[in-house]
Amino acid sequence: MMKSSMKIHLSHPTKEIEIKGPKHVRDLFTELHLIPEAYLVIRGQDLVTEDELLADTDIIEIRPVISGGSERTS
């Protein structure tokens, strides 16, 4: 069976979604209403920049980088 769209893993809360490619990372952010400053995009094991073109065969993780409770001591 052929894969027909890219698989995207999100956290906080954990979620798997599929989106039709090819698509630029920056357009993915717009489509999902995410601010780039708060996330990293990882393809397989590697980081990619906003101008990268993602394909239907790609496995993508959009990883939030913002953390913190009200009393972060570590």
Partner: peptide
Amino acid sequence: VEECPMSKGAKMLVYKDVLNR
């Protein structure tokens, strides 16, 4: 990558979001 469940709704996260915007 998972966050402490107690951090949900923390004020700090709101301030960080505002600053990132």
